[in-house]
């Protein structure tokens, strides 16, 4: 007996959906995916949505970047004799690291077991690597900050802290480069479609966002006379961030959609506009007036936070619609079948 496969299934029975339907494709927008029907199981997601609280984890992506970027600025300020910038950056770094720690522990399902993070060292887990990285970052960050607050250190320890502080600042900056970028690996090493596919660009977006945000904080906190390097760094960071996120959004095609559309995409656009405003203001105006520096700096800090929240939300959006999981995989399967 032979059976013949019926041609074309009616939409309804396959619980499928047309790709281009209801997606609000705008005029002139390039068609990223060939028109095809994809099935799903009653429209249910395939991969699980991250259980992370947005405020905790998107917040940490931001504060971790600030902790790292301000450590870098503090080391530079120390080497070039900018005392007030150094003080502001060292204390900001410790503050941002502390907020990060609180957010990370708060997000655990079992916060009292946070120490289990250091139970093993596991290179296949970016979160394990990150836990050790943050622990290594904490010591020099604490020493550098202590150097700015001698009145809080017991007398006999003061000379030691003073002696160690310059090296600690350099160490914090070096380890900070890892802290600023590993978080990209952290979110990209998941099955979340819009995060995983973005792994080549994400560390550069995060590095740029950390630099511009931290430089922005320097503009807010330090006197104009000492912030010339921060203004440069804001420029470098913003260019890095904008260029890499532009590349990310356009390379990704379909799974790049959450970075371009949806509320997450709108947040992303707003973040970019704010980065651009901040960097133009900091480059052109911030050296002239303290008020302009304050405004430019605040814009850059806000933009850095907004970028992280937008990226976090884009990932979540991509898990909610099975199309983002199924379509790229289905296309891979078809391509393999043809080759």
């Amino acid at each position: 007996m032979t059976t013949t496969k019926p041609p074309g299934q009616p939409e309804r029975q396959k619980h499928g959906r047309m790709w281009e339907q209801g997606r609000g494709r705008r005029r002139g927008e390039e068609l990223m995916v060939p028109q095809a029907t994809f099935s799903s199981y009653y429209g249910r997601p395939v991969v699980k949505k991250p259980v992370w609280e947005e405020l905790d984890i998107a917040g940490y992506l931001f504060t971790g970047g600030i902790a790292a970027g301000t450590a870098l600025l503090a080391a530079g300020a120390d080497r070039t004799g900018r005392a007030e910038l150094r003080r502001a950056m060292r204390l900001s770094s410790l503050a941002a690291l502390s907020v990060s720690g609180v957010a990370l522990v708060h997000d655990l399902g079992r916060p009292e077991r946070f120490a289990n993070m250091l139970r093993v060292f596991k290179p296949t887990s970016p979160m394990s690597v990150g836990s050790w990285l943050l622990s290594a970052f904490a010591l020099p960050t604490a020493i550098s900050a202590a150097d700015e607050l001698p009145q809080l250190i017991p007398g006999p320890l003061r000379p030691l802290v003073q002696r160690l502080a310059p090296a600690a600042s350099v160490a914090a900056a070096a380890i900070g480069s890892g802290v600023a970028t590993y978080t990209a690996v952290l979110i990209c090493d998941t099955a979340v479609p819009s995060w995983h596919a973005a792994y080549p660009e994400m560390p550069f977006v995060f590095a740029g966002s950390a630099l511009s945000g931290s430089a922005g904080l320097a503009l807010v906190l330090a006197p104009v006379a000492e912030t010339a390097p921060a203004r440069k760094l804001a420029f470098f960071g913003a260019v890095l961030e904008l260029a890499s996120s532009q590349r990310l959004e356009h390379r990704l095609g379909l799974v790049g959609e959450p970075y371009r559309e949806h509320p997450s995409g709108r947040k992303m656009k707003l973040a970019k506009a704010l980065t651009l405003t901040g960097v133009v203001a900091s480059t052109l105006l911030a050296k002239r007036s303290r008020a302009a520096a304050l405004a430019a700096g605040a814009a850059l800090v806000g933009a850095s936070a907004l970028t992280r929240f937008a990226i976090f939300e884009a990932g979540v959006v991509s898990t909610e619609d099975p199309a983002y999981t199924v379509a790229p995989q289905r296309i891979r399967v078809e391509e393999r079948a043809h080759n």
């Binding site: 480069s177 994400m202 560390p203 590095a207 440069k232 470098f236």
Partner: peptide, 23 residues
């Protein structure tokens, strides 16, 4: 993962390089 870490290492290098350039 290996490729991810390579990209992150390159970005970390850029991060430090830009810091040096700024100061």
């Amino acid at each position: 993962l290996v490729s991810m870490w390579k990209h992150a290492a390159a970005a970390a290098g850029v991060f430090l390089g830009l810091g040096l350039a700024a100061f």
